[in-house]
């Protein structure tokens, strides 16, 4: 009986400490020093939320760079991957289908090597990034769709360079391009 009372009391103590005070403390500090980040790195324009810098979006228009394939169609409720194993027939079929589609959509030579992230679905289904190479393969299609002249094309290429992030602190992770930020930027090219 004594043990039961001690257990109840110490459980209450830890619930208040680690379940209420700790998260509140962290929220307070975060909202103070990193308000934008703590609230989801939202992109707001004309008082409307367009999206989050961190969360990818689906693009199917010919005037935009396309994101990676997603098992949840970029709907974050809930996030997730396809969970197909390598010996799953569906994976092989989907990959060759995506390859054909990417080549046709971007009017590429059928022998072009497609970066693999454009053929495989991401883990979260919300991956905001593609590789530099995948962005470059889409340039000609977008230039054509937007009727860009050479000067505007140069600007577009500059945008890609601007939004190509190198490995963080030069040593962590991979080189990558944020698709949403890039698409927002090319909308500004006049």
């Amino acid at each position: 009986m004594k043990t039961l009372i001690i257990s109840l009391k110490i459980f209450l103590f830890f619930t208040i400490l680690t379940g209420i005070l700790y998260p509140l403390f962290i929220t307070g500090i975060s909202q103070l020093i990193f308000p934008a980040k703590a609230n989801g790195s939202l992109i707001v324009s004309n008082n409307k939320i367009i999206g989050s810098e961190l969360i990818g979006q689906d693009f199917d228009s010919i005037i935009y760079f396309t994101s990676r394939p997603s098992a949840v169609a970029y709907n974050p409720l809930p996030s997730g991957g396809s969970n197909y194993g390598l010996t799953n027939k569906k994976l092989k079929e989907t990959v060759s289908e995506r390859k054909k589609q990417f080549i046709a959509f971007n009017q590429l030579d059928s022998l072009t090597e497609i970066p693999s992230e454009m053929l495989f679905a991401s883990a979260s289904g919300l991956d905001p990034h593609i590789s530099f190479k995948a962005a470059m393969l889409q340039v000609d299609r977008i230039v054509k769709a937007r009727n860009f002249n050479d000067f505007q094309k140069q600007k577009l290429l500059q945008c890609i360079n601007k939004f190509t992030e190198e490995p963080q602190f030069l040593c962590f992770g991979e080189q990558r391009v944020n698709v949403l930020l890039l698409n927002l930027e090319i909308d500004k090219i006049k």
Partner: peptide
């Protein structure tokens, strides 16, 4: 949080994406 992780008690936000659909 400094790297971008969320920490708030806000309701889920609805974004109006470039494609024109809502993303919660």
């Amino acid at each position: 949080v400094g790297q971008g992780m969320v920490q708030n008690f806000n309701a889920y936000e609805t974004a109006h994406t470039l494609k024109g659909i809502d993303q919660t």
